[in-house]
Amino acid sequence: MDPIEPDAVRLPATLDVETVAAAHAALTARADAALVVDLGAVEQVDLAGLQLLCALVRTAAHHQRPLAWRGASRALHVAANTLGLGHVLGLPEAP
């Protein structure tokens, strides 16, 4: 069961230094409203990808905009936790 989010921004399967600019543009365009970000597809992530998510969390907190994650993969959890970013990002529970 994969509920479809209202206005969710869906991030790509590979969120790395090659694709991060496009994701950054997509998020920046939407950063002034309440945001649902669908991480369900993200399987590969590198430091650039995680850093982008950190920036998003900080931006939402700064503007007091609600931000909700959707469907973080195990790979994303492992990467975030290993790098000590698990609590910064507050990802939903692993599938």
Partner: peptide, 11 residues
């Protein structure tokens, strides 16, 4: 907005 805890998709 201070009363909003989160927004979720329909389930």
């Amino acid at each position: 907005i201070l009363r909003v805890q989160e927004i979720r998709g329909w389930s």
